[in-house]
């Protein structure tokens, strides 16, 4: 699979990763090599089995438990104000 710098840029934007030109230059051939490895998938024969995800059915009962204290809630950030988390702008 041919990987271009445009593809890498588009993927990076989707994943909210900023890459320098130097990084892009480095990533393009690596990306292509990795996708080369992954493309081997196409030649693996399928024997008809479906994907399966485990079934356990171990669900939770609907009972309340104590939540975190305000101190704990904000213990890992400086960005809070009046009981709210502070985040970047939307508009």
């Amino acid at each position: 699979m041919k990987i271009t710098s445009e593809i890498v840029k588009k993927v990076a934007d989707t994943a909210r990763i900023t890459l320098s030109d130097k990084e892009i230059e480095k990533f393009v051939p690596q990306f292509e090599e990795i996708m080369g490895l992954f493309s081997q998938l196409a030649s693996i024969k399928e024997t008809g089995s479906e994907y399966s995800i485990k079934t356990i059915n171990q669900l939770r009962t609907d009972t309340e438990e104590e939540c975190l204290s305000q101190e704990e809630v904000f213990s890992n950030t400086k960005n809070h104000e009046m009981g709210f988390f502070k985040g970047p702008k939307i508009k």
Partner: peptide, 12 residues
Amino acid sequence: LQHKADYSLVDY
């Protein structure tokens, strides 16, 4: 979300 002029406030 609540929108402030320069940032947002979030209640989860």
